[in-house]
Amino acid sequence: MATPFTGEGERRKGSVELRALAARRLRPVADRGAPGKVNRPLLATLGELGLLSRVVPLAGPVRAQDLCLLRESLAYACTEAETALALQGLGAHPVVAHGTRAQRARWLPEVAAGRAVAAFALSEPGAGSDAAALELRAEPTGAGGAIRAGGADGAAVSGWRLHGEKRWISNAPQADVYTVFARTGPGTRAAGVTAFLVPADRPGLGGEPLEMLGPHPVGTLTFDGVPVGPGDVVGEVGRGFRLAMATLDLFRPSVGAFAVGMARSALDASVAHAGERRAFGGPLKDLQAVSHLLAEMATRTEAAALLVQAAAAAYDAGEPGVAARSAMAKLFATETAQYVVDSAVQIHGARALAHGHLLEHLYREVRAPRIYEGASEVQRTIIAKELFRAAGAGASP
Rank of each mutant, 00 (worst) to 15 (best):
T336Q: 04
R148S: 12
M245H: 03
F258K: 13
G192S: 02
L69I: 02
A23E: 14
P253E: 03
Q174P: 07
F332K: 09
E124M: 05
F251V: 08
D130K: 15
D286T: 09
A146S: 14
R300H: 11
P209A: 15
E17K: 13
I147C: 02
T141W: 04
F280T: 01
V340Q: 04
G154E: 10
V233R: 01
G240P: 03
S270H: 05
P94G: 06
L267N: 06
R202K: 11
T299S: 14
G91D: 02
R239M: 08
G206Q: 07
E365Q: 06
A84Q: 09
P217I: 06
E211R: 12
T336K: 00
T141D: 09
P230N: 02
A289E: 15
L205T: 01
L353Y: 04
F120N: 00
F241H: 03
R364S: 05
A313Q: 08
I169F: 03
E48A: 13
G356R: 01
E72V: 10
R137H: 14
A182I: 11
R11P: 00
L26M: 07
E236V: 06
G60F: 10
A143D: 08
A200Q: 13
A97T: 03
P283V: 15
A44C: 05
I382G: 10
A246D: 12
F196Y: 12
G33M: 13
A116N: 07
A175L: 10
L287W: 14
R101C: 04
F120A: 00
G144H: 14
G394N: 04
A272W: 13
G235I: 00
P230T: 02
